[in-house]
């Protein structure tokens, strides 16, 4: 994980965020905090360790952690076996 450290962007959908604060409380890199609007926001993206905790634990599916390479390639998830 550590080698991806610099290549990660964390983004929040403010419309879906309910501001529970789980992401901010448990983020090992202290990337996130609750802003004045009560919603999560990224304060120091550079320290993201790409552990995925916030994305897995966001009950509202409001956080996306993207690697920069992935953004550039704009690749989609393979849904080949979807109904």
């Amino acid at each position: 994980m550590a080698k991806d450290k610099q290549q990660v962007v964390v983004s929040i959908y403010p419309d879906w965020c309910k501001g529970c604060g789980i992401c901010a409380a448990f983020c090992p890199g202290e990337v996130l905090e609750l802003g004045p609007d009560g919603k999560a926001r990224v304060v120091q993206g550079a320290t993201c360790r790409n552990c995925g905790f916030c994305e897995h634990h966001c009950p509202d599916f409001a956080i996306v952690v993207k690697t920069k390479r992935r953004i550039a390639n704009n690749r989609e998830v393979d849904h080949a076996h979807e109904g």
């Binding site: 879906w16 309910k18 529970c20 790409n50 509202d60 599916f61 956080i63 996306v64 998830v77």
Partner: peptide, 29 residues
């Protein structure tokens, strides 16, 4: 990691209103 949320979105019913009805911090999500 990006696929996590994207994947979930693929399974959600987007004609249903989001965010869902549950309280902030509810673990059900």
């Amino acid at each position: 990691m990006a696929e996590v949320t994207q994947l979930i979105h693929h399974y959600l019913r987007h004609n249903k209103r989001f965010p869902h009805v549950l309280c902030p911090g509810c673990g059900h999500g």
